[in-house]
Design a protein around this nucleic acid. Structure first.
Lengths: 141, 141
DNA sequence: TCTGTGCTTGACGCTTACGTAAACGTAAAG
DNA sequence: CTTTACGTTTACGTAAGCGTCAAGCACAGA
């Protein structure tokens, strides 16, 4: 057996920025908002895998349209320590809310996808008409 | 047969605001951004079912986290006239992009829901431990 | 006629989520 | 030693999406 088998990889701010395709400004801004807490070596930021994971979660939250405040509560849930009963109950409550939110979003997405499919079908039909295959007999809203 | 069987219902701005739970300011703002184009009777806005539907689509887009500009392109797709071939091809292209976007979102949502379920399971387990049922034997990240 | 009630158009304010310099530190390379 | 690369803080700028007055019109009822 040996200690310290893996030197526990770290990243510079530029490396993280490149990997996730965001600017340095963005990463520093997230830190300012308390979403990231990189180590400091002197004045320089050093990011560990924990920070990297959190950045990934933050960006996924952004893709979902959450505000940074909402993202903060979500991401912090993942890292939450067991704590006392009140904390846990609160956390479960948060989870319930988040889940309801996300399921509403999924319904919205599914509806939108369905309607896009209809618009697409109309387009193809119209294209066929234009190319002289047949007259447009379908109903328009 | 008779003409004008239904007087074609209309709504005031306040009625729409109440129904969708938004402010008058918001509805006017959407008009300012070209998302709504209500009829004018004198100086007063009169909303027809078309406007009402569009407002619903706009708010759904908002729930999905789209910007108003993106929402504009989406909503306008629903109302698009057949037009020439170039237009149709462009529309189909837009649809492709939107669909890719939405499917990415759905993946993000599903991942998040899964992870929330894990956090929830941890919470319940921790609660049981606190209540003295059993010791927490599960792994923490 | 006075008082609401509901609508209108500005116009300024505010928050979020960064962009964009400016000015400086540090360490390696030429 | 100077340049270059990479990092830092401070701070002002900006676009989106409204909130929030302010001031005024139009019509209905007491």
């Amino acid at each position: 057996m040996h200690n310290n088998p893996v030197p526990a990889q770290t990243w510079s701010i530029a490396e993280l920025a490149a990997e996730y395709d965001v600017t340095l400004r963005t990463i520093r801004f997230y830190e300012d908002r308390g979403l990231l807490t990189p180590e400091r070596r002197g004045t320089v930021r050093v990011y560990h895998s924990r920070d990297k994971v959190r950045l990934g979660l933050i960006l996924r939250g952004k893709r979902l349209g959450f505000s940074l405040d909402e993202i903060a509560t979500i991401v912090d849930m993942y890292d939450a320590e067991p704590g006392e009963e009140g904390q846990l109950v609160y956390l479960l409550d948060q989870i319930t809310h988040r889940r309801a939110d996300l399921e509403q979003r999924r319904r919205d997405i599914d509806e939108t996808l369905q309607e896009l499919a209809e618009v697409e079908a109309r387009c193809h039909s119209d294209l066929n008409s234009l190319r002289g295959r047949t007259a447009p007999t379908h109903e328009r809203r």
